[in-house]
């Protein structure tokens, strides 16, 4: 894409093996990938193809068996546990399949949580920022509620707000719509897309859902731990349709 920009994520010849007792399960086998700021990328592939594994490596919650994973220009292999945590805190936002809100905290407190970890903003600034995001996700009036008082879609919107409250460069979402019905899932993707366009935040999300894939600028197709190709969403859909026919 934009040739002058440096990539926010740069992956080179990465392999990831899981060992299950004596058996070694290769989850990724020589993956290369570059993601540039502002992209809205979907990772697609059949179950077991390595989507989650790839996202975990990019999200610095796991390390590659071999190869180089660079996030925001930093080689993650060379960072300590502490530095990796800081990288996650300041550069990456996470949206989880099961929302993963802290159940005893209110909506407001859940969203505020990463800001408290960052210790950058004072109380008033934090409040402004949190309320601004809650408004963006349409939950300002629910700030005092507990997660269990919200619907699944509302919870995921809180999670989106939490992922974005620190204004990260990169947001990762592993199947963010898998636990939602298709309409609600659609809304979440719309919301993400909107934030991507307004704030220029880079999004990488994985999905099974062809409709969800539609919104992506690009789709990275994975199979058996390898990247098949990197295509537009239309091309990906065509390929998927063809694949389905082939069966």
């Amino acid at each position: 894409m934009s040739a002058g920009q440096s990539p926010i994520v740069s992956i080179f010849d990465v392999t990831k093996d899981y060992s299950l007792g004596k058996v070694v399960v290769p989850a990724l086998r020589g993956v290369d990938l570059k993601v540039f700021p502002g992209e809205f990328i979907s990772i697609a592939g059949p179950s077991g193809s390595g989507k989650t594994t790839l996202l975990n490596l990019i999200g610095c919650v796991d390390t590659a068996t071999a190869g180089v994973v660079s996030v925001a220009g930093q080689d993650t292999k060379k960072l300590t546990e502490k530095e990796l945590t800081n990288l996650r805190l300041h550069t990456i936002g996470f949206i989880f399949q099961s929302f993963n809100l802290v159940s005893v905290l209110s909506v407001f407190q859940n969203v505020e949580f990463p800001l408290l970890l960052q210790r950058k903003l004072n109380k008033a600034e934090r409040k402004d920022r949190v309320m601004q995001l809650l408004e963006q996700v349409g939950l300002a009036q629910h700030e005092k509620h507990r997660p269990n008082e919200l619907s699944g879609g509302q919870r995921q919107r809180v999670a989106v707000a939490r992922a974005l409250v620190t204004r990260p460069q990169l947001v990762l979402a592993d199947e963010p719509t898998a636990n939602l019905d298709s309409v609600t899932g659609q809304h979440i993707i719309d919301l993400m897309k909107e934030l991507n366009q307004k704030e220029g935040t880079t999004f990488i999300f994985s999905t099974h859902d062809a409709k969800v894939m539609n919104h992506a600028n690009a789709v990275v197709r994975l199979a058996d731990g390898k990247i098949l190709d990197r295509v537009t969403s239309a091309e990906a859909q065509r390929a998927m349709a063809a694949g389905a026919e082939g069966h």
Binding site: E81, K82, T85, N86, L89, F94, F96, V102, F113, P114
Partner: peptide, 16 residues
């Protein structure tokens, strides 16, 4: 564990 893992993922240090 999931709650704690989540906190860790979104940037909480072990000490926290």
């Amino acid at each position: 564990v999931r709650e704690i893992g989540t906190m860790r993922a979104i940037g909480a240090q072990r000490s926290l």
